[in-house]
Amino acid sequence: MERRRAVVVTGFGPFGEHNVNASWVAVQELEKLGLGDSVDLYVYEMPVEYQTVQQLIPALWEKHRPQLVVHVGVSGTATAVTLEKCGRNEGYKGLDNCRFCPGSQCCVDGGPESIDSIIDMDAVCRRLSSLGLDVSVTISQDAGRYLCDFAYYTSLYQSRGRAAFVHVPPLGRPYSAHQLGHALRAVIEAMLADLEPPGDTGSGCHER
């Protein structure tokens, strides 16, 4: 009998010009689709607040003991679904929805400068390219030093790298909620496959 796996996926709430945050819309679409009978999917909307994120992420890891946590955020400059390779600890100067930023400008005092995901994002990207999705997928090593990066690093630190971050473009620029939801499901299925090697080889992705 196939063992059940827990996967937690988060999206962000509104902030700035993003009155409707494409990341949470995409996560809600994913929730409708599910990840198959062997995966227990838990979704959460996170507010764009440093202190709340700092408390919520460890609580999610503690509550669900997931095999994988995937955080999803919107990027106003993205035109593809973007897989982030690492999270950064320092340089958080942007104010959140509460007009707050960490006094130390870092996620974890004394933590490493950056933490890489244990997921091979290049292999995941190649796998997705072979599927012929109607959504472009690329990879990045800079999640932006705002709440997205902050959440990612916090989760990577909590899990020793068993986390992922996916940036999506704003809705309609160019993808619909339906397309983003289906792309997110394919991304997470590929990540779960990567956590259970062997991975595959090939080409078709580039770093931005």
Rank of each mutant, 00 (worst) to 15 (best):
P169I: 11
H206Q: 15
H206G: 11
G73Q: 10
I119S: 00
Y157Q: 08
R126K: 05
H206S: 13
V81I: 06
E196M: 13
L56K: 04
A78K: 01
H182D: 12
R127D: 04
D142E: 13
F15Y: 14
A143C: 14
A22N: 09
Q67G: 06
G202F: 08
V25M: 06
V166I: 10
M46T: 05
L184P: 01
Q179T: 12
S129T: 07
T138I: 12
C98T: 08
L180D: 00
R127W: 00
R185A: 08
P14F: 13
C125H: 09
A193D: 14
G87V: 10
V74F: 05
S203K: 10
C205G: 09
F100Y: 15
H71M: 12
A193Y: 01
A151C: 13
E49R: 12
N19R: 15
I188E: 02
T154F: 01
C101F: 14
R162H: 06
G144N: 07
S130V: 06
S136A: 11
R4C: 11
I139Q: 10
Q141P: 04
L131P: 01
D200P: 12
K63D: 09
G94S: 15
V9K: 03
A80M: 11
V20G: 07
E113H: 11
T82M: 07
L192E: 12
L131Q: 08
I119C: 00
V166A: 00
A78L: 01
S38M: 12
L60K: 05
K85L: 04
G172D: 11
R162P: 02
M121N: 01
L147Q: 10
V72Y: 00
I139N: 14
Q54H: 09
R88H: 14
G144T: 12
R65Q: 14
P14V: 09
G16S: 10
V43M: 03
V108G: 11
H206A: 03
G172V: 06
D120N: 01
D142M: 03
D96W: 08
F15T: 07
S117Y: 03
C106S: 14
G111Q: 06
H167R: 09
G11Y: 04
D142H: 15
Q55I: 13
T79G: 12
Y92A: 02
D134C: 08
Y92M: 10
D96G: 07
E2R: 13
R145W: 13
Y175H: 03
S176K: 01
Y175M: 02
S130E: 14
S159R: 02
G161I: 03
A177L: 06
